[in-house]
Design a protein around this nucleic acid. Structure first.
Lengths: 143, 143
DNA sequence: CACAACTGAATTGTGCGCAATCATTCAGAC
DNA sequence: GTCTGAATGATTGCGCACAATTCAGTTGTG
């Protein structure tokens, strides 16, 4: 068990989501919703672009965005030049929530840094892992 | 986005689960069910012990075990010395499935090793991260 | 014994994460 | 203009992951 990279990854991701759940609790936000706020804080985006950046598909994002819209955190509107696309943007309230939450999650940083001597290197490896796994998935899907 | 350790972790875990989904597809097993097979391959265990080893609670495990039991992969029986506890064990079929699947998932190893120069070190850091996150969660829960 | 506190598992409800499917819209070929 | 195929997002169904609750069984205390 202990020698499985995949399990160490799985456990760490679960534990991290759990820690975020605690921190995000006061705003009643999930980790995924937090990620959407972070992405949109840069600029408004279409659903598909959000999906590309977070690695999620519409089956996951649609209900998430529906909840966030109903709570007034984001707006959704069809683009005029291409009615297939839907642009998602932060509302005033979404912006304020993002700013508050972005500050709050900072309390987790020491716990990350305490376990990771070289964060940039860890991120690099995890991104490489992500890339390899996705490639593998698509190879097998194609064949 | 790219500088968030938590997101790199989240993406890598999602992609890895996805890769396992492909490999485990022929046996109609999920990643979580695979983990249960691996744990039980060592020896029979109670639900709570499985939960400790995998970091899952009964709310997750109960339905998983119900599905695996209905498919004949595991058996569940109440312990005679403590009827609150339920011992879960592999069946013959569960053992065979474990052996076959354990061999099949080996095809993922090169993709792991290709992205990770020092697997033992990565696992150590991820375990440290898991520990820190869990500790944080319980601290906040207590206060 | 009586009874409160605790433990182990199951159940319920919510929210992802993804496969599969669908409707709508757009673009290119003819 | 019409037709075909691709793209976009929504919907449905299933299986986790977890909080909260429930319930049976056990343990500790007097």
């Amino acid at each position: 068990m202990d020698e499985l990279i995949c399990f160490a990854l799985y456990s760490a991701a679960n534990a991290t989501t759990q820690a975020y759940r605690q921190v995000l609790g006061p705003w009643d936000l999930t980790y995924t919703q937090f990620l959407v706020l972070v992405v949109l804080a840069g600029d408004a985006r279409t659903v598909s672009v959000i999906g590309q950046e977070l690695g999620l598909d519409s089956g996951t994002l649609s209900p998430v965005l529906t909840r966030m819209e109903s709570r007034g955190l984001v707006t959704r509107r069809r683009r005029v030049d291409d009615e297939r696309s839907v642009t998602v943007a932060l509302t005033e309230d979404g912006r304020r929530t993002h700013d508050a939450v972005a500050a709050a999650v900072g309390c987790l940083t020491p716990s990350f840094l305490g376990a990771v001597p070289d964060p940039a290197e860890l991120i690099r490896q995890l991104q490489g892992l992500t890339r390899n796994m996705k490639q593998l998935t698509h190879e097998r899907r194609a064949s």
